[in-house]
């Protein structure tokens, strides 16, 4: 399927480009925008964006593969990202990950069959005081316990998105 950048996207993109003396500086913000719309950055999207910004495709691809936040395949509706760095590790991140693997029946990097959850183990999220930390899409959940995790998963399954802070 041919991928085209919508006029609406282009309007927003022009505003973002205008923040920089060179348009190509907007590459990462624009990739984030594309991902926000589609849940991932498809090859076609990279092609379209490289054309839009007048950049070699290879540069766009290199950027997409360098940064960890870009999904190259569609992620689930809820992307559960468990921090596993030192503070979260000490606070029980391995147990949290194990619980999620068991509850969802998937390994890290996988998505549940219903397309609801993607599970990832990630490096330090910069919220170590709230360890262990779980990020759901763009929101942080701190001091996650087994009980809190159960409630959270139930809420998410029923389309209830809890407030984070």
């Amino acid at each position: 399927m041919a991928f085209t950048l919508t006029d609406e996207f282009k309007q927003r993109a022009e505003k973002i480009c205008a923040r920089y003396p060179r348009r190509d500086a907007a590459l990462i913000p624009l990739l984030l925008e594309l991902q926000r719309e589609a849940g991932y950055v498809a090859e076609e999207a990279m092609d379209a964006l490289s054309g839009y910004l007048g950049l070699p495709y290879s540069r766009v691809k290199a950027v997409v593969t360098f940064y960890t936040m870009f999904n190259r395949v569609p992620a689930g509706k809820y992307h559960l990202q468990v921090c596993r760095n030192i503070s979260c590790h000490m606070a029980g991140a391995p147990g949290l990950l194990a619980a999620l693997r068991a509850r969802l029946g998937i390994e890290e990097g996988e998505t549940t069959k219903d397309g609801l959850f993607t599970l990832s183990a990630v490096e330090c999220l910069g919220a170590c005081g709230d360890a262990p930390v779980l990020q759901v899409n763009e929101d942080y959940f701190g001091r996650v316990t087994a009980e809190k995790l159960d409630v959270l998963l139930e809420d998410l399954k029923h389309g209830k998105y809890p407030s984070t802070r």
Binding site: P56, S58, R59, K61, A62, T65, F66
Partner: peptide, 10 residues
């Protein structure tokens, strides 16, 4: 100046 190649991933 064809820029076909890049280092992918990290």
């Amino acid at each position: 100046k064809t820029s076909e190649l890049e280092v992918m991933e990290r």
